[in-house]
Design a protein around this nucleic acid. Structure first.
Lengths: 323, 323
DNA sequence: GGAATCGAGGGCGGGAACTGTCCGCATTCG
DNA sequence: CGAATGCGGACAGTTCCCGCCCTCGATTCC
């Protein structure tokens, strides 16, 4: 049998792949599948262990090998469908902007997209299109995951970027910038970039960018006039992004509300009533979460929210009266 | 220099890891990082290509290596944060039951969870708990992703499973079964399993199972008395799961509605009005999507939906009148 | 309790593969 | 044109891999 390291290394990868399915494999079976002797399988298992991937073995009849959790992530060997599932999962997660792992999400997306075979990419975008964007964005805008991956690549690769931008007042312009950071803020994403034409730093809302195209031209990254891009962004955005301090009384035990609205400040009033404040950043978002609790509640604080709920109330009223 | 295949294979993995970040790497830099000569790097790149992972090289100054999309998925080498991001993404995706990739999602979750280091697992569950379950389940029940991974492992590993089950009428019972399939249905999951005690096949709703514990005892999988678990389940469930045929008139161009409600049958009435039918399976779900469109609409068909909307209307009315 | 199955691991010999070095070549950018 | 980059052939020395022996320990089933 003609072999080489590519075979040895390839075999180790195949072995890793087999061991990653959540079941046990007897060494003889592995030997058969990989076309080597059981002795070699034992040695391969040792090699994997040397590499830091803990392979557990159960002895006796019915025994076998299994990859278990170690201290480092082993390389994930995915089949087509699993890769698609992960890509779709990341996209929906990015749309909803989960917790504090947005950057990591985007990095993982970029990494995956970079190596995702074309046929799978098609399936992912088809599925992505078929997925209901559950989050009702303030203005109905949801950020396009594709854009995020393109931006992440351009940043990592230090490539200049060309795109079209619609400013807040709607006036469009063409831009050519040196992208430096991608910063999540609420359910929005901002690109922090240096604009050589205007010789200054600029922030761009990702959902307002169109026709992204990395130019391929490299640049040497400049130092940001602040330690942290996020705080830099916050300073410059403070005046603009309105946040709604909400106060509402919810007729549900405080414990239940905390479980269903993590992130909100919940204050117990009595056994079955509590006061909720500071939920989110857009009235649509706030209204949705309050209604979604499915219990009685009263809104006290932001007049905008009350107005929005009144609209909702009227709209539903019309829907059922004319139907 | 003392080397071995574990070094060679390990180096190949490191190389793959470096090449997976979305940027270009000059060979000299790679050689420096991996502690080998540039010639070896070239050979390693060749080896990766032999393994089917297309490494692209750009010549000339400023050139370098980059991993591009090929025909097969290369092993994904993730850092801690990326792994957590993927795990969280899969969990939220599993909760929402995306499109037709549910099984793959669960398989990927099981694969990932199996090798996820403990410290990362803690972060994932913390983040998972902090994530708002956006989907308002019919009865507020969302399936626990952990359960799904445990079940998937038990199935793949052909392990008997013990758990407690609350039947539809609420009566609890202890079960000991041979799990065979996990079937998604709407936003619910069912386990298809053989119950040796009762000597027959049974279906269990995953959200009604508690105290899951694989016993470790193996079993030889029996043949299901049907070709396909999904259709088998459907036959047995047909009478129970009510689906609501909805008909509503929506005052929005048909094109827009199709974009925002994929899966629904949309029929154009005139330029700015259309008829929507057959959206989903629970009134809460239907109501949510109709309201979420943010436009005028009238509901014609299921009286349950009208009733639900009236409740919603009244509840919102009380919320804003007393606030 | 015995047999069968499975993992762990030492030793050996032949053959093969890996690495580094040196070389000339092609390509791209400034 | 020169510098940086990738490409790849040839060679020599080292070493490492593989399959085949073997024994031992653990576990399960009969």
């Amino acid at each position: 049998m003609l072999v080489g390291v590519t075979d040895t290394a390839g075999r180790l990868l195949s072995l890793l792949s087999l061991l990653q399915s959540p079941r046990e494999w007897p060494g003889s079976e592995l030997a058969r599948r990989l076309g080597v002797s059981p002795r070699t399988i034992r040695r391969d298992v040792d090699r994997l262990r040397d590499l830091g991937y803990p392979v557990e073995a159960t002895m006796g009849a019915e025994g076998g090998y299994r990859l278990v959790a170690g201290t480092a992530m082993p390389p994930l060997l995915l089949d087509d469908e699993e890769a698609v599932a992960i890509a779709v999962g990341l996209r929906t997660a990015a749309r909803q902007t989960v917790a504090g792992i947005e950057e990591a999400s985007v990095r993982a997306m970029a990494k995956l997209e970079q190596v995702l075979p074309a046929r799978l990419r098609r399936r992912v975008s088809a599925l992505g299109a078929a997925t209901v964007p559950v989050v009702l964005g303030a203005d109905g805008v949801t950020v396009d995951p594709e854009h995020l991956t393109v931006l992440a690549s351009a940043i990592a690769n230090r490539e200049r970027l060309r795109f079209r931008y619609s400013a807040a007042d709607g006036t469009p312009s063409g831009r050519h910038v040196e992208p430096l950071h991608l910063v999540p803020s609420g359910r929005r994403w901002y690109l922090v970039a240096f604009d050589p034409g205007r010789d200054d730093w600029r922030f761009f809302r990702v959902d307002r960018m169109t026709a992204l195209s990395p130019t391929g031209a490299r640049f040497a990254p400049r130092a940001l006039p602040a330690d942290d891009p996020a705080t830099y962004l916050k300073e410059h955005m403070l005046s603009r992004a309105p946040t709604y301090p909400v106060v509402a009384t919810v007729h549900l035990p405080a414990r239940d509300v905390r479980a269903r609205l993590p992130g909100a400040a919940v204050q117990e009033v009595d056994e079955r009533t509590c006061r909720v404040s500071g939920l989110g950043d857009t009235v649509e978002y706030l209204a949705f979460h309050l209604v979604q609790l499915g219990c009685e509640f009263e809104v006290h604080e932001p007049p905008e929210l009350v107005r929005h709920l009144r609209d909702l109330h009227d709209r539903i009223g019309r829907a059922i009266s004319s139907g």
